[in-house]
Simulated scan of single mutants.
Amino acid sequence: MTTTYAPASEPGADEPRARFHDLVAAEWIKLRSLRSTWMAYGATALAVIAFNAGTAYDTYNYWPARSAAERADYVQAGIPLQEAFTANAAMVMMLALGAIGAVAIIGEYSTGTIRATFAAVPARRSVMAAKAVVVTAVTTVFGAIVAGASFGLTQAILDGRDAAVSIGYPGALRLVVASALLAPVCAVVGMAIGSVIRHTSATMIASVVVILVLPIVFTDGRHWSAVAGHATLFQAWLRLVEVGSARTDFPWTIGGAWTVYAVWALTAAVLAVTSAQRRDQ
Rank of each mutant, 00 (worst) to 15 (best):
V138E: 07
A144Q: 06
I145R: 05
M128W: 06
L181F: 10
V135P: 04
V185P: 00
P184S: 00
A123G: 05
G171A: 10
T154R: 11
G160K: 03
S166K: 09
R174H: 03
T140M: 04
A144R: 06
F142C: 13
M128H: 09
A178T: 10
F151T: 04
V141A: 14
R115C: 08
V176M: 01
T117Q: 11
I114L: 12
T136K: 00
G143S: 13
A123M: 08
V165P: 09
A149R: 12
S150K: 02
A120H: 07
G152R: 00
S179H: 05
A116W: 11
A183K: 00
L175V: 09
A129R: 08
A183M: 06
A147Y: 05
F151K: 10
R115Q: 15
G171F: 12
V176K: 03
V146H: 04
A147V: 12
L182Q: 04
P122M: 03
G148C: 11
I114C: 04
R115L: 14
A183D: 06
D159R: 00
T154H: 07
P184E: 02
A129P: 01
A178G: 10
I145V: 15
G152H: 02
Y169V: 14
V135C: 10
I114V: 15
I167A: 12
G143N: 09
F151Y: 12
G143P: 07
V177N: 02
V134T: 05
V185K: 00
S150A: 13
V134K: 04
L175W: 10
A156I: 03
T140L: 09
L181V: 07
P170E: 08
T140E: 03
V138Y: 11
T136D: 00
R125Y: 06
V176P: 06
Y169L: 11
T154Q: 00
V121D: 06
I167E: 05
V135D: 05
V176G: 00
A119L: 13
L181N: 02
R161W: 10
I114M: 12
K131V: 11
L153Y: 01
T136Q: 01
V185N: 01
A116K: 02
